[in-house]
């Protein structure tokens, strides 16, 4: 039997789904709303945020937070396109979706290592 890469993508999808379910709402509220509106000014000064995100645990957390849900999104988006009728280019759709998640993961690693 030919080996399938499907279990790998599915595992990343499931792990990303858990991470997104647990922390995406609070993360969006923190950086997309609280920081954007300038709530708690001293919490979002450059010096404090730099110190916070530079900590090794924060970097690891941010890497997991960004990478795994990207694979979750890629997997869902892939099957949404197919459900919407894009059946001809199945292979290409998979490559583009997972490729974007891999690219995002590499970029996240580079940004976080260089902090």
């Amino acid at each position: 039997m030919r080996h399938s890469s499907e279990p790998i993508w599915w595992s990343l999808f499931a792990a990303g789904g858990v991470v997104a379910a647990l922390v995406a709402p609070v993360q969006i509220a923190l950086t997309g709303i609280a920081a954007a509106l300038g709530w708690a000014d001293d919490a979002f000064t450059h010096a404090r945020v730099l110190a916070l995100v530079s900590h090794p645990i924060s970097r690891l957390y941010l890497f997991v937070l960004i990478s795994l849900p990207l694979f979750h999104s890629a997997h869902r988006f892939r099957f949404t396109l197919i459900d919407l009728g894009l059946k001809q280019g199945r292979g290409l759709v998979a490559v583009l979706c997972y490729g974007a998640a891999v690219a995002g993961t590499i970029l996240a690693a580079l940004v976080l290592i260089r902090l």
Partner: peptide
Amino acid sequence: SVFIAIYL
């Protein structure tokens, strides 16, 4: 998932 990806 699209919104979450753009947010990330």
